[in-house]
Amino acid sequence: MLNNPAGVAADDPILQLPKVALHDHLDGGLRPATMIELAASIGHELPATEPEALAKWYHDSASSGDLVRYLETFSHTVAVMQSREGLMRVAKEWVLDQVADGVFYAEARWAPEQHLEGGLELDEVVEAVQEGLEAGVIEASADGKFIRVGQIITAMRQADNSLAIAELAIRHREKGSESGVVGFDIAGPENGFPPSAHLSAFNALHQAYVPVTIHAGEAAGKQSIHEALTICHAQRIGHGARIVEDMDIVEGEGQLGSLAAWVLDQQIPLELCPSSNLQTDIGGTIASHPITGLKDLGFAVTINPDNRLMSATSVTREMRLLVDEAGWTQTDLEWATVNAVTAAFLPLDVRERMLDEILIPGFSRVNI
Rank of each mutant, 00 (worst) to 15 (best):
N3R: 12
P5E: 09
G7D: 06
V8E: 08
A9G: 15
D11K: 01
D12S: 11
D12G: 03
L15S: 12
P18R: 11
V20E: 01
L22A: 12
L26S: 07
M35A: 05
I36G: 10
A40K: 13
G43N: 04
G43Y: 06
E52A: 15
E52G: 06
A53Q: 15
W57C: 00
Y58V: 05
H59F: 10
S61K: 14
S61C: 13
A62H: 02
G65E: 04
D66G: 01
V68A: 11
Y70L: 01
T77N: 06
M81R: 03
E85I: 09
E85D: 15
G86E: 10
R89V: 10
A91M: 11
A91C: 11
K92C: 10
E93Q: 15
D97H: 07
Q98N: 15
A100N: 04
D101L: 00
V103S: 09
Y105F: 15
W110H: 03
P112K: 00
Q114C: 09
Q114M: 13
H115I: 03
L120I: 13
L122N: 05
E124I: 05
E124N: 08
A128Y: 07
E131G: 03
G136I: 06
E139S: 09
E139C: 06
A140E: 02
A142C: 02
D143M: 15
D143L: 15
K145N: 12
F146E: 13
F146T: 10
I152V: 08
I153C: 00
T154P: 00
D160W: 01
S162E: 09
L168R: 04
L168S: 09
H172Q: 02
S177Y: 12
F184A: 11
P189E: 03
P194C: 01
A197W: 13
S200F: 13
S200R: 15
A201L: 08
F202G: 06
V210E: 04
P211Y: 11
I214C: 04
I214K: 03
K222H: 13
S224I: 02
S224N: 10
I225H: 02
H226C: 02
L229P: 04
G238I: 00
R242N: 08
R242P: 01
I243H: 05
D246Q: 06
M247E: 09
M247K: 10
M247C: 14
I249R: 11
G254K: 14
G254Q: 12
Q255W: 07
G257S: 07
L259A: 04
A261T: 12
A261L: 13
Q267E: 13
E271K: 00
N277Y: 03
L278D: 00
Q279T: 02
T280M: 04
T280L: 01
I282D: 05
G283A: 08
G283H: 01
T285C: 06
I286K: 09
I286Q: 06
D296F: 03
D296K: 15
F299Y: 15
F299V: 10
A300V: 07
T302N: 05
T302S: 11
R308Y: 13
M310H: 07
S311I: 00
R317K: 15
R320H: 11
W328R: 04
E334W: 11
A336Q: 05
T337Y: 06
V338C: 07
A340M: 09
A340D: 05
T342V: 14
T342C: 08
L346Y: 00
L348C: 12
D349M: 14
R351H: 06
I358D: 14
I360F: 13
G362W: 10
G362I: 07
S364R: 14
S364F: 00
R365L: 00
